[in-house]
Design a binder for these strands. Structure first.
Lengths: 197, 197
DNA sequence: CTAATATTCGACTGTACAGTCGAATATTAA
DNA sequence: TTAATATTCGACTGTACAGTCGAATATTAG
């Protein structure tokens, strides 16, 4: 009378189904505009069933983010582990995120834009985000020290690069997404390597 | 029995009062989180009075944006009119916006972040925004042509600069706002003038 | 003063929506 | 098979909130 492995897996699958439906509704209506009834319809379950799998709308929402950040993290880990120069690692990270973002537009713009919309403290996904930001900050610091980036305040550089990247990847028309090649060019043009001058 | 000038002015003042109150609530609670009851309380009127001056919450909201964009526009017009080089004009515009933003944090982050939160077509303030964006885009084009900016796709450059700027001015802790000096430095470092090389 | 008009308001109404309930069905273990 | 457990659901409940109503008060013009 224990729960079989298959049962657990199917449960996870159903959860995924709900999350996918939810993400679609969030994309279309925004977070506040999305209703549990719609999410239910969009994922093919009755509303009460959603509450069988998740305690609240908040939890659905949070699960999307945790999943998303976990997957970002997994895709970045090898890049971070490979001990290249700060500059190369930095650019690789941005490119990888951009690549992910392009193949999964909805999820990624959700992941990166949500912090502005929500401000409930201590979300579990926050720690992933912080870890990523800390690493990037660290790369910038090391890079400036090694003379691979222009000698600027890294806090500033971080904000600037963060904004720039968001702008490139998430701003404007979805029809003409920015290619990795373009991002790479731009970064190399803008963040000129001082030692190469 | 006509409406006296003073009466009209006082009406405007009361509208301002309401708008200020509303902005404070929006800042604290976000747009969706703000209620008309709170806005009423925060501006010192009864709720029904708000509806004497504005038709809907939407209209209050919209009035803030129109006011805001009008004031941005007025502060930028002289800069645009003074026929300096594209590069100088571009940087002056950014600096002016940053300056405004710092002296009126709440309003400006509202102005620039709202487009992400709302998507009702044909808002009157949209035309201001578009005009500004068109001008910046034009400056970038002229600047690239004149060799004052690195030779990059201006669409890209626009997105990148837009994002970068947003990042600098609006991201992160409010305690340590970025100074104009810093922004200027950064822009000059990053968007290296090719002809100066 | 009086009457017209402008302003103010709290109480009320209607609606949208998160979350619950209790019952129905499906699945599993014995 | 039976009984326990897992899953599903639409109808219902409670609440929060935008917007309205009608009456009260204040201001102005004559």
């Amino acid at each position: 009378m224990t729960i079989s492995k298959r049962q657990l897996e199917e449960r996870e699958l159903r959860k995924e189904r709900i999350l996918t439906g939810a993400l679609n509704v969030f994309k279309k209506k925004g977070i506040e505009g999305a209703t549990m009834d719609e999410i239910a319809a969009s994922s093919g379950f009755g509303k009460a069933t959603l509450y069988y799998y998740f305690h609240s709308k908040e939890e659905v929402f949070s699960a999307i983010l945790v999943n998303g950040w976990e997957s970002i993290w997994m895709s970045l880990e090898p890049i971070i582990a490979s001990e290249k120069s700060p500059r190369k690692t930095f650019i690789s990270i941005l490119l990888r995120i951009a690549e992910n973002a392009r193949s999964n537009q909805g999820l990624y713009s959700f992941l990166f834009n949500v912090p502005k919309l929500i401000n409930i403290e201590e979300q579990p996904w926050k720690s992933y985000q912080n870890r990523l930001y800390a690493i990037i900050q660290g790369l910038l610091e090391d890079g400036v020290m090694a003379g691979e980036f222009p000698p600027l305040d890294t806090q500033l550089l971080f904000k600037a690069m963060g904004g720039l990247f968001m702008g490139l990847v998430f701003m404007g028309d979805r029809e003409t997404p920015v290619s990795e090649k373009e991002i790479e060019n731009l970064l190399n043009q803008l963040i000129t390597n001082p030692t190469q001058k």
